[in-house]
């Protein structure tokens, strides 16, 4: 009599995750020789004194036979699609009939990340976005998982939106990401595309933003008077020029922060800047830099100049 072979499997790894993006290159570069752990729970039968399970591959070739005195069977297996069947031996020494072959998927073990990375929040994979492409290259790596043939890498932004999915045949990947902070997960993939459980890396990815490349500012001095000058500002689409004017006294070496902001930062829309005519005598420093959304400001261009009193300014202290 074929018993009610209602048995259930409790596999140590989750299965059944499907992905839209399947790898186009499925060649095996390396696969962990460690086998995946499988636990299988038979529905208990009161007459059973021993349980027997046979594992077949997808081509119905017998791979292994396991026996257990309890209804819980634990065994190691390669990952992939297998078929199993079972029977039990009753107290009369008679085996029941084999159950039907039931297909199951044995997933590879999940990737385990280093414990140190979980406690060290300062640790992250870093990259710097290029000025030209706005993307930064980051090399990430992870530990090998038993029975993983390849890995699915998913990168999430701060809003948990997937920004990248990629299959890697090795335990590292080179990513090109825009500036920002990211988390990532690795899902191991075993034989016959059976997927393991998604593991999230405690180590984040940080790509510092791209910096606007140096802008060309030209100072044109009046040949007759070095104190008179104008600065030609670069004109680039979508980059705005920000200016900052600072003042310092002469002989201010003893002051901690000698430069004081004059007014506030200003956006320069003209193509030429020259100092306003009403400046108090002293030392000045004009700084300009480029600004663009999601970009790091360009390195500031700085130019120092002096405003001197005129003869008229000193008329009241000079005797006629």
């Amino acid at each position: 009599m074929i018993h009610n072979y209602l048995f259930s499997f409790f596999l140590t790894l989750q299965i059944g995750i499907s992905y839209a993006n399947q790898p186009d290159d499925s060649s095996i570069k390396s696969i962990s020789k460690k086998l995946s752990s499988v636990e299988m729970q038979w529905e208990e039968n009161k007459n059973a004194v021993k349980y027997q399970v046979q594992v077949f591959n997808s081509k119905n070739k017998l791979l292994k036979t396991f026996e257990s005195k309890t209804s819980l069977l634990k065994f190691k297996s390669t990952s992939g699609k297998v078929k199993i069947r079972g029977r039990f031996l009753d107290s009369y020494g008679k085996f029941s009939s084999w159950s039907d072959l039931t297909p199951i998927e044995v997933p590879p073990d999940p990737v385990k990340f280093n414990e140190a990375d979980q406690t060290n929040k300062e640790s992250f994979f870093a990259g710097r976005a290029s000025n030209k492409t706005m993307k930064g290259k980051v090399l990430i790596n992870w530990n090998q998982a038993p029975q993983a043939k390849k890995y699915l890498l998913k990168v999430y932004d701060n809003n948990t939106k997937t920004v990248l999915e990629k299959i890697s045949n090795s335990t590292s990947a080179e990513l090109f990401l825009e500036a920002g902070s990211f988390t990532f997960s690795i899902t191991s993939i075993g034989n016959e595309e059976v997927m393991g459980k998604e593991s999230f890396s405690p180590k984040k990815i940080t790509v510092s933003s791209a910096q606007i490349s140096d802008l060309n500012f030209e100072v044109a001095n009046n040949p007759k008077n070095e104190n008179q000058f104008e600065i030609k500002l670069p004109q680039k689409r979508s980059i705005i020029i920000i200016g900052k004017l600072e003042y310092s006294y002469h002989m201010s070496e003893r002051i901690d922060k000698p430069w004081k902001l004059v007014g506030s930062l200003f956006e320069v829309k003209e193509t030429i800047w020259s100092p306003p005519g009403n400046l108090t005598p002293g030392k000045y420093k004009i700084s300009f830099w480029g600004r663009k959304d999601n970009w790091q400001d360009s390195i500031p261009f700085e130019y120092e100049f002096t405003v001197k009193p005129t003869i008229n300014d000193l008329a009241d202290i000079n005797p006629n």
Partner: peptide, 17 residues
């Protein structure tokens, strides 16, 4: 006074002036 006012009007830090 003469030196002080000259330096002050030239933009010298007042303690140094």
């Amino acid at each position: 006074q003469k030196v002080f006012l000259l330096l002050k009007k030239s933009g010298v830090e007042l303690t140094r002036a």
